[in-house]
């Protein structure tokens, strides 16, 4: 009886150990010219159904055709995407693990979330650039952005602005206004666009910033009033809403590289021929009519940039936004420490 029990215990322990340690990766290193000789893993840094997820999944089918292999997509969420970013960084630089993430890694260092940034990766493609629109409830006294700014000047820190956490787009919008107009809001933190929409509908907040795609239907429906698009150019989805850079020209330099962007990246050190192949594949995904239509319908600006151009855009973005966060006093570390130039 006891011997039998001991046996069961030993077997169970062995089972646990084997199933835990058995998850290692194969050691074979394929030659560059044979790439891709097996399936590719795509790691999405954000949850299923969200913007990063949808944009990433729409890119993949056409890219798979060009590569002649399948790309297995999985979501690895948490800690503003830094868990996924770290995971991809921990894999081999062989082009078999791709990172699908948004703009967030460019702020990880100053926010103290991770030592990584896009400097540790090679951009395959930056697909779209999204913008935020400043919205208020339809019953709000603010008819224009001017009204909001004037009231904020009269009552500093009294207007409740819904944000989605430090580093999120509504938060960055509040910093742009703070830097450019010298106004401060009282931030109230919600979990993202959906909860912000609910809160604004219930008049629990006075103003917020939403991704254009998320806001359009409420603006068209008359529930919300859009005051300005946080960009230098108007957005095709909301052609009647003025651009922030248009009514406040002195903010234009700050808005040059702003908003959020989605892209595909591989670890730095991946051989150039592999990067070239991936670029070709994802450009095909980007040019796919289904992807283009999706981006247009959701108020995103098509980028489609790769290589040096993409790297430069991300650098400019990081320089502008990291300093903005730092000067607002919300950064854990100074951008200087990471060699991020002042804009």
């Amino acid at each position: 009886m006891t011997r039998k029990k001991l046996l069961v215990l030993v077997l169970l322990t062995a089972l646990v150990i084997v199933s835990v340690t058995g998850c290692g990766r194969p050691a074979a290193k394929p030659p560059e010219e044979a790439y891709p000789s097996k399936y590719i893993t795509g790691i999405i840094a954000w949850g299923a159904g969200g913007g990063t997820d949808t944009t990433s999944r729409l890119l993949v089918p056409a890219a798979e055709k060009v590569l002649g292999t399948s790309i297995v997509m999985s979501n690895r969420t948490g800690a503003t995407g830094s868990i996924a970013t770290q995971f991809v960084y921990d894999q081999r630089a062989d082009g078999y693990t791709l990172l699908f993430n948004a703009e967030n890694p460019q702020l990880y260092q100053v926010l103290g979330l991770s030592p990584l940034s896009y400097d540790d990766f090679e951009p395959i493609i930056l697909t779209v650039n999204g913008v935020t629109v400043i919205v208020v409830h339809k019953d709000s006294p603010y008819q224009t952005l001017e009204d909001l700014i004037n009231d904020a000047k009269a009552n500093p820190g009294k207007i409740n602005m819904g944000i989605s956490g430090v580093g999120g787009q509504p938060y960055m919008t509040s910093l742009i206004l703070r830097q450019g107009e010298g106004i401060t809001f009282n931030p109230v933190t919600f979990d993202g666009d959906g909860p912000l929409i609910t809160a604004l509908m219930g008049k629990q907040i006075d103003v917020t910033g939403l991704a254009v795609a998320a806001a359009v239907q409420y603006v068209k429906n008359g529930d919300f009033r859009a005051l300005a698009v946080v960009s230098n150019k108007r957005n095709d989805s909301l052609p009647d809403v003025p651009a922030l850079g248009e009514i406040r020209p002195h903010l234009q330099s700050l808005l040059r590289a702003s908003g959020f962007f989605y892209g595909v990246h591989v670890k730095k050190g991946t051989p150039e021929p592999i990067i070239a192949k991936l670029r070709e594949a994802f450009l095909a995904g980007y040019n796919d009519p289904q992807f283009q239509e999706y981006a247009r319908n959701n108020g995103m600006m098509l980028m489609g940039i790769t290589g040096e151009e993409a790297r430069q855009f991300m650098k400019d973005w990081q320089s502008a936004m990291a300093w903005l966060v730092y000067e607002a006093g919300d950064a854990k570390e100074s951008p200087e420490k990471f060699g991020i130039p002042k804009p």
């Binding site: 159904g49 969200g50 729409l58 409420y218």
Partner: peptide
Amino acid sequence: LGIPGDSVTAILIGALIIHGIRPGPM
């Protein structure tokens, strides 16, 4: 409202958006 009531409806909204439909008042 176009707002998910739980985690599954959040993903359903994403799935519908891929198919070009955005749930909500419109």
